[in-house]
Amino acid sequence: MQEALATGPGPAWPGCAKIDRGLRKPRLRASDPLIISAAIMASRTPEDAIVQARRPLSPHLQIYRWYASMMMSILHRATGIALSVALLLLVWWLVALASGPDAFERVHSLAGSWFGLLVMFGITVAWAYHLLNGIRHLAWDAGYGFHPAQFRRTGMIVAVGTGVLTVLVWIAFLIAR
């Protein structure tokens, strides 16, 4: 016979379950949330279980208050993705360099156009932000910077440092050019 979880007058402690050997239909009481969760999740989809157990659904993004730390976390991930795409552009440049002067000239002329310079500027911003925020994450891994005041201060340092580092890199680039 199929065993099911049920509660009844038998358990010595509240919230404990006894095994129903199939002699009667399992009964679930609202006072036993763990038993309800186990029984509902075993027989239905997760969405049905949430509705059955009368649990709140996860809030949508419109409900959240956007904090600077939330935005910085999202930007850190986005800059990581952008740097992965930039790595593909670097590989394209290296393949063109190995392919000969005609292929290299095409890539070099595209990189020197206003669009190419704009892309390289964006890559520089992504690199600077990801670098500085990565250092911030290393400090967190060491256990530093979790106080809310330190959290905000290091976030501001990363934001301002990104701008300063980007400008310094581009000044060096323009001087070397």
Score class of each variant (00 low, 15 high):
28 L>G: 01
34 L>Y: 08
50 I>R: 07
123 I>M: 06
162 T>K: 03
150 Q>P: 02
124 T>R: 08
87 L>M: 14
84 S>I: 07
43 S>W: 08
64 Y>V: 08
132 L>A: 03
47 E>R: 04
73 S>L: 12
71 M>G: 14
135 I>H: 12
55 R>H: 00
144 Y>V: 15
119 V>N: 09
94 L>T: 05
86 A>N: 14
8 G>S: 07
66 W>C: 10
80 G>V: 00
44 R>S: 04
153 R>G: 11
134 G>T: 02
38 A>R: 10
135 I>E: 11
163 G>A: 12
155 G>Q: 06
149 A>I: 15
141 D>H: 14
109 S>N: 12
100 G>T: 03
115 F>C: 07
71 M>T: 15
93 W>V: 09
117 L>D: 06
148 P>H: 13
104 F>Y: 13
98 A>Y: 09
50 I>F: 01
103 A>I: 05
176 A>R: 04
57 L>A: 10
138 L>P: 01
86 A>V: 12
141 D>W: 10
52 Q>H: 05
94 L>G: 01
106 R>Q: 14
134 G>W: 02
138 L>T: 10
175 I>M: 11
139 A>Q: 11
126 A>F: 04
72 M>R: 11
127 W>F: 15
114 W>Y: 07
8 G>L: 02
141 D>I: 08
164 V>G: 06
125 V>C: 14
82 A>L: 07
161 G>L: 04
161 G>N: 05
